[in-house]
């Protein structure tokens, strides 16, 4: 660990807050060495910021149809040009950012919540529950994610909310598995035995001692899963199963542009580029976080 910082600090009186601050500092310091991850992180901060305040900055309405202005090339007025209905693509992409990020974050948060509970039950209690939960996750992991999501959406009906549910569900087994493995490793450590020999309740052991020590792989997994979630959600919308027109969802916009790709490539180009950049940024950040927070996973 960071012995250097620890030794440097022995001269002063370290308070609780300082210890936390130092941990963050050393975390940031190590992340900073990974330029790609840092780029991903800053790019995502920028994207999140734009998603929040962006809609206030453009003068166009994302769904106002204006046939006099259709298929305009990118220009100073319309940075990314206009689509087949004369809507400003830049405005639509900025509005779509909110949707895309919400779908990513919400579905991963739901998936993680269920996955963590199942994973901890499986890893901590073991036995029959473990076998039961893990066999079900094995079955779910055997399906390609997009296929599973497709099946769920076609059962529930096609709209963006059901896409979130579908993506959440197929995120659950991934989290359950990562959490189970980490729980098994932490559970064997002597400090868990120490808590048990003090008479601590299972709840205290799980929430006070296991969960805080398996957060790193969970954070890493969540970051990487957001990328997958965004890609899947866009994919479903592209196939017409997710966001319905005129919602400015990137996958749906990509589908709109598909018909005009030879004559007016910019209609499909910009939504596609947005998806690619955001997904790459999440992956870069996730990989960087993994190297910093969870060096053991690197080999996998």
């Amino acid at each position: 660990m960071d012995n250097l910082t620890a030794d440097a600090r022995t001269t002063q009186q370290p308070g609780l807050h300082e210890a936390h601050r130092t941990r963050w500092k050393s975390f940031y310091y190590r992340l900073r060495k990974n330029k790609a991850a840092l780029f991903g992180g800053y790019f995502l901060l920028f994207v999140i910021l734009v998603a929040i305040i962006g809609p206030l900055l453009t003068q166009y309405d994302p769904s106002k149809i204006d046939y006099t202005a259709k298929f305009l090339k990118p220009s100073a007025d319309h940075w990314f040009g206009t689509d087949h209905n004369g809507r400003d693509i830049f405005t639509r992409i900025i509005h779509g950012m909110r949707l895309t990020l919400s779908v990513g974050f919400v579905s991963v948060i739901i998936g993680a919540a269920f996955g963590i509970v199942l994973g901890i039950v499986s890893g901590y209690y073991g036995g029959k529950w473990d076998t039961f939960i893990m066999r079900i996750t094995d079955v779910m992991l055997a399906f390609p994610g997009i296929l599973l999501a497709l099946a769920i959406v076609s059962v529930l009906g096609k709209n963006l909310f059901n896409v979130i549910i579908a993506v959440s569900i197929f995120s659950i087994p991934m989290f359950a598995r990562v959490v189970r493995g980490s729980t098994l490793a932490v559970r064997r450590l002597e400090y868990i035995d120490a808590m048990r020999s003090l008479g601590a309740s299972d709840r205290r052991i799980i929430f006070g001692h296991i969960l805080p020590n398996i957060l790193s792989p969970i954070i890493v997994q969540a970051t990487l899963r957001i990328a997958v979630a965004i890609l899947t959600a866009s994919g479903l919308s592209f196939l017409g199963l997710g966001a319905q027109p005129p919602t400015p969802e990137w996958g749906a916009m990509l589908n709109d542009g598909r018909n005009y790709i030879t004559d007016h490539p910019h209609v499909a180009l910009f939504p596609g580029l947005s998806i690619v950049l955001v997904v790459i940024a999440f992956n870069l950040l996730g990989d960087g976080l993994r190297d910093v927070l969870d060096p053991k996973l690197k080999k996998l």
């Binding site: 400090y191 035995d193 120490a194 020999s197 309740s201």
Partner: peptide, 19 residues
């Protein structure tokens, strides 16, 4: 669990026995 206050344990690995 209530009785455990009378019996305690010191563990082998000082690097694994503290959270």
């Amino acid at each position: 669990n209530r009785k455990r206050k009378d019996l305690q344990m010191i563990f082998q690995d000082p690097y694994a026995s503290l959270n």
